[in-house]
Computed example of a mutant assay.
Amino acid sequence: MELDIPTRFERDWDRTVEDAPLRFAVVGLGGFARNTALPAIADSDYCETTAVVSGSPEKADRVADEFDAAYALTYDEYADGVGADAYDAVYVVTPNALHLPHVETAAELEKDVLCEKPLEATADRAERLVAVCEDAGVSLMTAYRMQTARSVRWVRRLIDDGVVGDPVQVHGEFSFRLLEQGGPDQWRIDSDLAGGGALMDIGVYPMNTARYVLDADPVAVRATSHATQPAFDGVDEHVAFQLEFPDAVTASCTASFNAASASRFAVTGTEGRIVVDSIFGVDDERRITVETDGGRTVVDAAAPNEVTEEFDYFATAVLTEMDLEPDGRHGLTDVRTAEAVYESSETGTRVEL
């Protein structure tokens, strides 16, 4: 099969958006919100930030000034609906276990929701989060930026088109040294706030990307996880898991908070192989290698920032009634799968989903 190599990766979902911008309240002003999400909204085609929400009034004021937001709100003010007429949608980017109450507020205010992954710290809370949005009739998208990245969407099309034949095995790895980026007191290794460790923060990337490119959900899991350093007491420092998909397809995934940096994803099929080096980081420069009987092709996949793409995709879906993926139930599947990973690791058994 002849490989169609794009000279430039385009949005395959783009359409005319007449009612832009979609106005956002950004709930949670940690490092990712300030350094990545808010600049991405500022650079977007169809979005703007009109309110920011923090537990610190001083931080909210400072960030509102920096990004020209009309409202700087505390969490209590947001919950009381202060300034609600100034925004159309809510982006929730707090620690995992705090997503539910902020989404409940958004649903009560009839605001559409873009919620960071994973949806919540437990499957029960994630299920409640999804239900409250469905009951209120508001859109809910799980913020898996990989699914809006132009290069990753191209990889999925290659697989859908049968370029590598039938998928057989997927491999994904994501790791870095977390403690070099903030010390031992960060919420990502607080089990109450995060729901886990490496799996809940970065292991969900290869997990969800496997589901996305295969367009399938896992039916069973086998896993192991462990921690060796005191800072990771009570959470997984390292995790390895194998997902079983229909038709005997497997995905082998690893994640670590205390290993050399790795960010790689590969799909092996009956007739070829696709490897993406440096895939999961926000600023990764992706190199896609496609190997088939017809030869080997390497593509340096320069494309716009996928966080900006994510916000524009969400805005397009909301403003044009385009089908929205990944929705809340898609995100709920990952939280349930993550709980099965932990169960398998604890029991040493295969867990069916």
Rank of each mutant, 00 (worst) to 15 (best):
D161M: 07
P218Q: 11
L3C: 09
A266F: 00
V82M: 06
S139A: 14
R188P: 04
V63S: 13
S344L: 08
D217M: 10
V341D: 05
F24C: 11
D323E: 14
E343Q: 15
D43E: 15
T148K: 13
F245Q: 05
G203H: 03
P304H: 08
A216Q: 06
T337K: 05
D85V: 02
K117C: 10
D293A: 13
A42Y: 05
I288N: 02
Q186Y: 04
T316P: 02
V130F: 02
F9R: 08
T292W: 01
T268P: 01
T94S: 01
R296V: 15
E352V: 15
E346A: 14
F67G: 06
M1H: 11
R145C: 12
E104L: 10
T289M: 00
E237M: 10
G331H: 01
A210P: 07
A33F: 06
D293S: 13
V204Y: 01
W13D: 03
A255S: 15
V113K: 00
L178M: 14
P39F: 07
D43F: 03
R11C: 09
G234F: 07
V221P: 02
G348T: 02
L114C: 04
L214E: 08
Y212I: 08
F176K: 00
R273C: 10
G203A: 04
D277P: 01
N96K: 12
E180K: 11
A20G: 13
V90N: 02
A136T: 11
P218D: 09
A72D: 09
T105C: 05
V249E: 10
D19V: 06
V82Q: 12
R329E: 14
P230V: 05
L22V: 15
A97H: 13
H238G: 01
A216C: 04
A220S: 15
A64K: 04
E291Y: 00
L119M: 11
H99P: 07
I202L: 11
D45K: 15
D334N: 10
A301Q: 10
V26Y: 07
R296Q: 13
R188M: 14
V168R: 12
F265Y: 11
A149D: 09
S54T: 09
D192R: 12
A251W: 07
E18Y: 03
T36S: 12
T105S: 13
T268Y: 03
T224F: 00
D233K: 06
G294V: 05
E271C: 03
G348W: 03
Y91N: 11
A69L: 05
D192V: 07
A251R: 03
L332V: 03
